[in-house]
């Protein structure tokens, strides 16, 4: 068992300066929460990463030819297959390690962790089959879902990860139907149903919690999954400065609880554990919603039912997690 990783804010800058993993000059929108997630992933490395990135925001903004923001081996193939590409890398690495093919080659290393990186579209929707297959086959990789809750890269269309009520360009606020009438797919439940050894949620606002989970995911033998909360100022119609504030409020309102699922056992972590023990600290979800243009219609008096329904959905989900959590 590896020594526990304790992220230290005094040491991380040196580590990142020596080996940044990802460079500035990428073209994520100002205030992009997902770009913060990438940096935090890099801070949690135990060895080099090889990343298989699905089509999506992070793929596009980091690799506009002839530029690349990656200082780590990286591949993008298509939208729906990040997990399958990662599976192939895992298999190739296994064979190359086992055969010692490059053991005498100073120019090549086959000692790395494999990461699949995909957005909500590439995970909840088009990539779900490849993800399920790779989990079932028990590949040794960490799948990171950066969830900005819509197809932001193509212009803010709804996905299976878009929450109830949210405005998107394909769930407009019309006179008849206002925003997305359906709810967010419980992706971690689906993943955990594969009985993989490690799954967790992270919010970049709680970086110590996030870095520890990234590290655990990388250290896991077999498949690991991390659902990362990625604020999108452009698609959510939020102020760029509020990205971390929203990443915090999502957790404080229990819209996005922080937990890990280790060998199918659920454990709340960090602030979510605190809230579980002190329920009075749970904030009304309105505090989270009111900062976002995509939910603005829900705050109008005539749509009060939507706000109430959103709160009910949050409460319901929170209750389910509380029941599952072993440490509450």
């Amino acid at each position: 068992m590896a020594k526990e990783f304790v992220p230290n804010i005094r040491q991380l800058p040196k580590f990142m300066k020596e080996d940044p993993g990802i460079l500035p000059g990428h073209r994520a929108c100002a205030g992009c929460g997902c770009a913060i997630i990438l940096r935090q992933l890099m801070m949690a490395r135990r060895k080099p990463l090889v990343i298989a990135n699905a089509t999506g925001c992070m793929e596009v903004v980091t690799t506009i030819f002839p530029y690349t923001a990656w200082k780590t081996p990286w591949i993008h193939v298509a939208f729906e297959n990040a997990a399958a590409v990662a599976a192939g890398i895992d298999a190739g690495r296994n064979k190359l390690q086992r055969s010692g093919r490059f053991s005498d080659d100073p120019d090549v290393s086959v000692d790395y962790d494999v990461v699949a990186l995909a957005g909500d579209g590439g995970t909840y929707d088009i990539g779900l089959q490849a993800l399920s297959g790779a989990l079932e086959r028990w590949h040794n990789f960490l799948y990171i879902l950066y969830d900005n809750e819509a197809y932001m890269n193509t212009g803010i269309q709804r996905s299976g990860g878009t929450p109830f009520g949210a405005w998107t360009t394909t769930t407009p606020v019309g006179s008849k139907i206002k925003g997305k009438p359906l709810t967010k797919k419980p992706i971690v439940d689906i993943v955990v149903a594969h009985r993989i050894p490690y799954a967790a949620t992270v919010s970049p606002a709680y970086w110590v919690d996030a870095l520890k989970k990234f590290r655990k995911g990388l250290e896991t033998e077999g498949p690991a999954f991390i659902h990362a909360f990625g604020v999108c100022p452009r698609g959510w119609r939020t102020d760029t400065k509020d990205t971390i504030k929203l990443s915090r409020l999502a957790v404080e309102t229990c819209f996005f609880p922080l937990y890990e699922v280790v060998n199918s056992e659920w454990y709340l972590t960090g602030p979510s554990l605190t809230i579980a023990k002190n329920p009075e600290r749970k904030k009304p979800v309105e505090e989270y919603l009111k900062l976002q243009g995509r939910f603005r219609h829900m705050l109008l008096p005539e749509n009060k039912w939507m706000l109430e329904k959103f709160q009910e959905l949050v409460d319901e989900n929170w209750e389910i997690i509380l029941k599952r959590a072993k440490n509450v």
């Binding site: 060895k47 080099p48 090889v50 793929e59 596009v60 690799t63 506009i64 030819f65 690349t68 990656w70 200082k71 780590t72 081996p73 990286w74 591949i75 993008h76 193939v77 890398i89 100073p106 120019d107 090549v108 290393s109 086959v110 000692d111 790395y112």
Partner: peptide
């Protein structure tokens, strides 16, 4: 190839 010694980016935009 995907190689931490000399990282390359495959499949850019």
């Amino acid at each position: 190839m995907l190689n931490p010694r000399y990282p390359l980016t495959f499949g850019p935009l």
